[in-house]
């Protein structure tokens, strides 16, 4: 049965953080995506292992003064607080104890079943927030998708998209936009 869409109450990031502090989501994995509270999919072993692999590959090449955060909240904008699989942010391991980082230099999603969500929804959301470098470790096709150069596009879900997209596969190498000398073999990012 099809039904006309209801207008759902949208949440601001500040309200979402209040809900988190209240303990409403204890035990639930939730992200705030464009004003909506989305339940995160449970994670399989293959996905978790792939995230760890990317983490180690990144850390091996990152210069000092930058850290990798795994599945941790990002204060992306006023109605979004996603938890990307990995982000690279400035600072030291003990930083961000009062508030989440807002401007990752690099965001990475490891995608198996979430590929379309990561491309269309998260891609548009991250582009809107001005994240300049967004990678999808595509486990389905075994490629690394590199998205850069965010620009406005009214047809995109959040009215922004990445204007440049590249698909890399071994033996290619990739370097984060913010650290051009930190080269990583694509083979080291894929299971």
């Amino acid at each position: 049965m099809t039904q006309p869409p209801l207008t759902l109450r949208r949440w601001k990031r500040a309200e979402y953080e209040q809900l988190v502090d209240l303990g409403v989501f204890q035990g639930d994995s939730i992200e705030l995506i464009g004003g909506q509270l989305v339940v995160a999919e449970p994670q399989g072993a293959y996905h978790a292992s792939a995230v760890t692999r990317v983490d180690y590959a990144l850390r091996a090449v990152l210069p000092g003064g930058w850290i990798v955060r795994i599945q941790a909240p990002v204060s992306l904008d006023d109605d979004s607080e996603p938890e990307p699989d990995l982000v690279v942010v400035p600072g030291r391991p003990g930083d961000y104890h009062d508030s989440h980082p807002a401007h990752p230099a690099l965001a990475i999603e490891v995608a198996e079943s979430s590929l379309e969500l990561d491309r269309q929804h998260k891609g548009s959301l991250y582009a809107r927030a001005g994240i300049g470098d967004y990678w999808i470790v595509n486990l389905v096709d075994r490629v690394l998708e590199v998205y850069r150069n965010p620009g406005a596009d009214p047809s995109a879900i959040y009215a922004w998209r990445y204007r440049s997209a590249a698909s890399l596969r071994p033996p290619d190498a990739v370097a984060p936009l913010a650290f051009p000398s930190s080269r990583i073999a694509v083979a080291d990012l894929l299971p």
């Binding site: 809900l19 995506i33 929804h121």
Partner: peptide, 27 residues
Amino acid sequence: MAVEVAGTRRRFTREEYYQMAEVGILK
């Protein structure tokens, strides 16, 4: 703008709904 989110939205109980009103998240 009605944005369709792919993925499952978190749903609430009446108890949580009233909790939100009590602490002023819902005004």
